[in-house]
Computed example of a mutant assay.
Amino acid sequence: MNKVRMYTSAVCPYCIRAKALLQKRGVVDIEEIRIDLDPGQRQHMMASTGRRTVPQIFIGDIHVGGCDDLYAIDARGGLMPLLRDAA
């Protein structure tokens, strides 16, 4: 299974929803990068995604997007292949 990296903050309900879906799909290890604890990481997140909001989710080297994007990919049946096959 591919590595999952997620930019998050402590009080983000969308981060919690995204983590719950990933765990439901068998992801046991999510690398969380807390932008509320390390403001420099927010700048890095914005530079690499072009977005300001959390969560921002990466599966392997692929930027999935936010919580709604993750759920949309899952609804199309694309999440499990991405978890297995992302580069």
Results as ranks from 00 to 15, higher is better:
M1L: 12
N2D: 07
N2P: 08
K3F: 15
K3E: 15
V4P: 08
V4A: 06
V4M: 11
R5Q: 13
R5M: 09
M6L: 15
T8Q: 09
T8W: 08
T8P: 12
T8D: 05
S9G: 06
S9V: 06
A10P: 14
V11L: 05
V11M: 11
C12S: 15
C12M: 13
P13A: 13
P13Y: 00
Y14N: 06
Y14R: 02
C15W: 00
C15L: 00
C15T: 03
I16R: 14
R17W: 05
R17C: 03
R17A: 05
R17S: 11
A18K: 00
K19S: 10
K19R: 07
K19P: 09
L21W: 04
L21T: 07
L22R: 03
Q23N: 03
V27Q: 08
V27E: 10
V27H: 08
V27W: 08
V27R: 05
V28E: 12
V28Y: 15
V28M: 09
V28R: 12
V28I: 15
D29I: 01
I30S: 04
E32F: 05
I33K: 14
I33R: 07
R34D: 15
R34W: 13
I35R: 05
I35P: 11
I35Y: 15
I35H: 15
D36W: 01
L37F: 10
D38H: 15
D38A: 04
P39Q: 14
G40R: 01
G40I: 02
Q41F: 11
Q41W: 11
Q41V: 02
R42P: 05
R42F: 14
Q43N: 06
Q43F: 12
Q43R: 07
H44Y: 13
H44F: 10
H44C: 04
H44S: 06
A47M: 08
S48N: 00
T49V: 07
T49C: 01
T49I: 04
G50T: 10
G50Q: 13
R51C: 04
R52D: 09
R52W: 13
T53R: 04
T53V: 07
V54C: 07
V54Q: 11
V54G: 12
P55G: 08
Q56V: 06
I57W: 07
F58V: 02
I59Y: 02
I59R: 01
G60E: 07
G60T: 04
D61P: 05
I62A: 04
I62G: 08
I62Y: 13
H63R: 13
H63M: 07
H63F: 09
H63C: 08
V64S: 06
V64R: 01
G65Q: 07
G66F: 14
G66D: 14
C67I: 07
C67K: 00
D68R: 05
D68E: 13
L70N: 06
L70T: 01
L70R: 05
Y71E: 03
A72S: 13
A72K: 08
A72P: 03
I73Y: 04
I73F: 07
A75G: 00
R76H: 10
R76T: 01
G77I: 03
G77H: 03
G77K: 08
G78F: 09
L79S: 08
P81S: 10
P81F: 07
L82W: 14
L83C: 11
R84K: 10
D85F: 14
A87E: 02
A87F: 03
